[in-house]
Design a protein around this nucleic acid. Structure first.
Lengths: 160, 160
DNA sequence: AAAAATTGCGCAATGTCCTTGCAAATTTGG
DNA sequence: CCAAATTTGCAAGGACATTGCGCAATTTTT
């Protein structure tokens, strides 16, 4: 889909406030409410906007621990990867999972309440993941950045 | 803040659809619209809900590359860390940064359009980060999971 | 144990907002 | 340079969020 400056402005605004009312959004990007509403509709239907979500405070819910787990599988066969990934998706505490190049096959981010909770997750979920032959966990001591998306401002400045 | 089952249901629904209208939300959690609106207000003001965000498709914006960069600094002095983190926050392509325990001091997630773009970011930003003595990049071949938050369903089942 | 106070609910009204139809204006393509 | 197609703004109608108010249930106080 072809995006112009106004589309980028809409995306930028909604990345910062996903519940911004259409009326305010329209004013911010310099459009009438109806035109803005129609553009937004297009952006959603085309899949540029994948959805909206509320960001909940992990701290307030007692989730104070993030672990980064690197691991390798016994092989790279499709079946092996599929079975592993299916298992990973079932674990609600795994919030990020990438298939990687390099030393390890996968990188996971695991969120837990505390060390005891992590021990439970490790026991009930991580050790149950199939085909894992090597595993390496580190703990996040502090979250320095956690942006929902790559900045669009910068993107704009470069590509327009 | 003390949360009950209905609060968790609200959080759960809004994590999946941050733009869910209050009327629908109320129906979903079994409350009148006014009661639901007031609860939501409380959740927002107390900081349990940190905000709402549109989820933009990196693919559709041409951001097809995610790199995970592990690196260590020349020391762990506060000043060293602060200077490093300040520099990291300035780079719009760095979307995740954790201070870590273990072999490396920091883990970054860097989003780029393609390899050439990554080369630019590496040259202009990463090599300019102060106090870095060891650096190790891997590329994500595929995104298996990217949840905005830890699942609350599971949390509920355990804690209620 | 009774009364008072606090908390949370639903209902109803008011004001705001989103959406759709339509005509004008702008952009695109031949 | 003109015609077709897309996009815009305006206005109306319908939906929605929010606030005050009375009521019920639970908790605290006496």
């Amino acid at each position: 889909m072809q995006l112009d400056t106004i589309d980028y402005a809409i995306l930028n605004a909604l990345q910062k406030d996903g519940r911004l009312a259409n009326a305010s959004l329209a004013e911010k990007v310099g459009l009438s409410a109806s035109a803005c509403s129609r553009r937004l509709d297009t952006l959603e239907k085309s899949g540029v906007i994948r959805g909206y979500y509320a960001r909940v405070s992990n701290k307030q819910l007692g989730h104070n621990l993030t672990a980064i787990v690197n691991l390798s599988l016994s092989g790279q066969f499709t079946k092996t990867l599929n079975e592993f990934e299916a298992a990973v998706k079932r674990c609600p505490n795994i919030v990020v999972c990438y298939l990687m190049s390099g030393e390890y096959d996968y990188t996971l981010h695991v969120v837990a309440k505390d060390l005891a909770d992590y021990e439970r997750i490790h026991r009930d979920w991580l050790t149950a993941l199939p085909h894992v032959v090597k595993i390496n966990s580190s703990f996040a001591l502090r979250e320095v950045i956690d942006r929902p998306n790559v900045g669009i401002d910068a993107d704009l400045a470069r590509s327009v």
